[in-house]
């Protein structure tokens, strides 16, 4: 049996924690709305650039762009996109579980976000670079990551690049994914109506005019594609992070409230018990 003062103490400290989690929930909720809007608004754009990518790949002919080159994979790089801060439930843990499928000997990691960097350091994987991204991801941040990965690939230090990141589905669901990034090709890891795009693309004429030339158009597009892709990955990661944090803080607040309720009940019982005991003592004293 705990004493009344310890109970009071615990109730007070839990109420303080509940205040903090409540505040964090509010902050995450407002950030979540903006981040979700940005992630969802980008979807049609992703679909179109992916379609164009598939269409151009089909119409390549004999032109071999270095970013499209499929090589025997001896060494690969993985871009691990996590959050900067914790307190967002199992989000990062789910993400890091995907890492185990890669052989640490032949895999280089590019950490994006502080938690990813800490994870790579702790598990002693090979870290090639560390990037950060801000609260509202900016295109320049994505393009720095894209440029670094592209550079590794083009210098033949790695033969393939993957992205491990959270895809935002809705407030309650975020899906950890391992996506094909480089060489640029078909994305099979996520179902986003890609099959329909493949059907659309296969219906296209093989003949197509490129102006001013196939090389110029492809260079223009393919040099931008990895950056645009990365930007969408970051937007999705942010939307997932805020959603997960909102939900886990809401759960924390709720369980704190239940705990406070239980403890208050126990405290009141104890207090009542003490009063009864005292009354009995007084009554006993009078009787004797």
């Amino acid at each position: 049996m705990q004493s009344a003062s310890t109970l009071r103490h615990r109730i007070r400290s839990i109420s303080n924690t509940a205040l903090i989690t409540k505040a964090m929930q509010m902050v995450a909720a407002s950030k979540m709305r903006r981040a979700q809007e940005a992630a969802l608004a980008g979807r049609p754009f992703v679909r179109l650039i992916y379609r164009i990518q598939r269409a151009t790949s089909k119409r390549l002919g004999d032109y071999a762009h270095p970013l499209l080159e499929v090589r025997q994979v001896r060494k690969r790089a993985v871009i691990l996109v996590s959050t900067d801060k914790g307190l967002c439930g199992a989000l990062n843990a789910n993400l890091f579980r995907l890492v185990s499928q890669f052989d640490p000997e032949t895999t280089l990691f590019i950490a994006v976000g502080r938690k990813a960097a800490q994870f790579i350091a702790r598990t002693q994987h090979q870290l090639a670079a560390e990037f950060t991204y801000s609260e509202t991801p900016r295109f320049t941040e994505a393009s720095a990551i894209g440029a670094f990965a592209t550079d590794l690939f083009l210098r033949r230090e790695v033969d393939a690049v993957h992205v491990i990141a959270m895809r935002f589905v809705d407030t309650l669901t975020q899906q950890p994914l391992c996506l094909e990034y480089l060489p640029i090709g078909q994305i099979k890891a996520v179902e986003m109506g890609w099959a329909q795009i493949e059907t659309e693309v296969s219906a296209l004429n093989a003949y197509c005019l490129f102006e001013p030339s196939r090389e110029v158009v492809l260079d223009f597009f393919l040099s931008r594609y990895p950056k645009l892709y990365m930007y969408q990955v970051l937007l999705n990661a942010k939307a997932s992070e805020h959603s997960a944090r909102m939900v886990s803080m809401k759960n924390a607040t709720e369980s704190a409230e239940t705990l406070i309720g239980d403890l208050t009940l126990e405290y009141n019982k104890l207090r009542q018990g003490n009063i009864t005991k005292e009354l009995l003592e007084i009554a006993g004293g009078q009787a004797s």
Binding site: R59, L209, F210, E211
Partner: peptide
């Protein structure tokens, strides 16, 4: 990049910047 172009329906397939 090559200047202003006009596109009408039934244009031949084209990709440009």
């Amino acid at each position: 990049i090559d200047g202003q172009i006009g596109v009408l329906p039934h244009h031949v397939d084209l990709m440009t910047c």
